[in-house]
Amino acid sequence: MTKSQLIDAIVAAHSFPRKAVETAVNTVFDSMVEALQKEERIEIRGFGNFTVRKYKAYTGRNPKTGDSVDVPEKSMPFFKVGKDLRERINNGVDPDA
């Protein structure tokens, strides 16, 4: 499913006008990018949480040539799935229960 298919699916299932759904979907993802840029944690109950993890600089190696490469420190988004969604993906059962 792509973003435009997500919009199609929402419009098909509800009586919302397409234009409003497009604005909402775009605003939701834009706002989440902005929050992560501010290193703000995002918590969507039942769906999951997004956090920003910081990684220190390290010296790596180019696996092809063996040359050493300096990798600068970086921030990466990290997603942890919520309980409700994890159960849905596993046929309604929590695999750790």
Binding site: L6, A20, R88
Partner: peptide, 17 residues
């Protein structure tokens, strides 16, 4: 507006489900 936002995450959950 809340219903529309809710439908975004519900639709994503249905798809991933």
């Amino acid at each position: 507006t809340a219903d529309i936002v809710e439908s975004i995450f519900e639709t994503m959950k249905d798809t991933l489900g």
